[in-house]
Computed example of a mutant assay.
Amino acid sequence: MADITVDASVSTLLYKQAVRLGPVWVSTSTAYVIYRDDSADLVYQKTADGGASWASPVSVHTGSLAALSIWYDRWTPGHAGTVIHMAYGDTVTDLVHYRSLDTSDDSLGTEITVFTGVSLLDGDWTNRVVDVVRAVGGNLYIGFWADSNGGELGFYRSTDDGAAWTSRAQLADGNATDGILLMPGNETDEDDIWCIYWDRSADEISLKVYDNSGDSWAETSIATSMADDVDYYDMSAAPRHSDGHVILAAWSEHNSATADLRVWDIDGSGSITAKTNVLTDTNLGGQVAVFIDQQTDAIYVAYVTTWGASASIKYKKSTDG
């Protein structure tokens, strides 16, 4: 298939604003993308013909969107739900919101305020970030920083499909914004979750495990000497449904001659296994996305090479884990 334009009126800074946008494939023909448009509003678009054409944008939130992430029920191992969960922040109202989109009938749920702040920022990844996930057991979780170093941050849980949210044990190491990827856990308590945590000040990526019943976090290092970039989110992860493991890919540096695109197989704090690099000592590289074919366990890692007026998007595939 040739490249298809989904919409020409998206934010020019989309790469600084969303941890996950989709596409969310609910069948071989139907998918959704969720994004900030060039008016700073949150919208979604849908295809019903495998991506050959896309319907007009549908409004989700009108305001001044600064941070966004999504999670689809069926990205969580064992879940057969039909809901896309959206978490996002607005710089005008200084609110962090949650809203659902049910793909069974395209109905939008009520917009829920998760957190009320005073100084939610736009800008690069050191200013704000938000992520959302559905645990294997069904709980929903949202983690976020709303400003660069002002203490507006939080970790919240919903036990009723997003209708109400309560503050839980703090995920953050401190007020300074770090990178996070919330993931379903593979623990005895199915409402425990994992967080891939990129400590920007320490240049370290770690696994944080949230104990739902004890409301506490435990941390294990994954890799050191991992230099983040403030403009690009240079890590991605996805759960593998066959065994509950998470596959993580991350660049050791951004756009550097000594940069490696590294991969790990994670099954909790006691099982973090470095796999073969996707790329080693690769200049002009950055950004990454991990996809898993849940039917065959094949792993796809996509990345960008060659920066400037034009860029190349490539991928590599592994069929042996």
Rank of each mutant, 00 (worst) to 15 (best):
D3Q: 14
D3R: 14
V6S: 12
V6M: 08
S9W: 08
V10P: 02
L13H: 11
L13Y: 15
Q17S: 14
P23A: 11
V24R: 07
V24L: 11
S27N: 13
T28A: 08
T28R: 14
S29N: 15
S29D: 13
Y32K: 15
Y32D: 08
D38W: 03
D41I: 10
D41Q: 09
Y44Q: 09
Q45F: 02
A48C: 04
D49V: 05
G50H: 14
G50V: 13
A52I: 12
W54P: 10
A55E: 06
P57Y: 04
V58D: 00
V58P: 01
H61E: 02
H61D: 01
A66W: 04
A66Q: 12
I70K: 02
W71H: 14
Y72M: 09
D73L: 05
R74N: 06
W75G: 01
G78L: 05
I84G: 02
M86G: 01
G89I: 03
D90R: 02
T93V: 08
T93C: 02
D94W: 08
V96M: 11
R99I: 15
S104C: 07
L108N: 03
L108W: 11
F115W: 10
V118A: 15
T126V: 09
R128C: 02
D131R: 10
D131Y: 15
V132A: 02
R134L: 05
R134F: 00
G137Q: 07
G137L: 07
G138V: 05
G138R: 12
N139D: 07
I142P: 01
G143M: 11
W145D: 12
D147W: 07
N149A: 13
G151N: 09
L153C: 06
L153S: 09
F155H: 13
S158E: 00
S158F: 00
D161C: 00
G162Q: 01
R168H: 01
A169K: 12
Q170R: 15
G174T: 12
G174F: 11
G174L: 10
A176T: 13
I180L: 10
L181M: 11
L182G: 13
N186L: 01
D192C: 06
D192T: 05
Y197L: 08
D199G: 04
A202G: 05
K208R: 15
V209I: 10
V209S: 13
D211G: 12
S213E: 14
D215Q: 12
S216A: 14
S221A: 07
S225Q: 14
A227L: 11
S236V: 04
A238T: 09
A238E: 10
H241T: 04
H245A: 14
I247P: 00
H254K: 13
A257M: 03
L261M: 06
L261T: 10
L261R: 10
R262Y: 06
R262C: 05
W264V: 08
S269W: 04
T273V: 14
T276E: 07
T280C: 00
L284Y: 07
Q287A: 10
F291K: 15
I292M: 04
D297E: 09
D297C: 03
Y300T: 15
W307P: 02
W307C: 02
G308L: 13
A309V: 13
S310E: 01
S310W: 03
S318H: 09
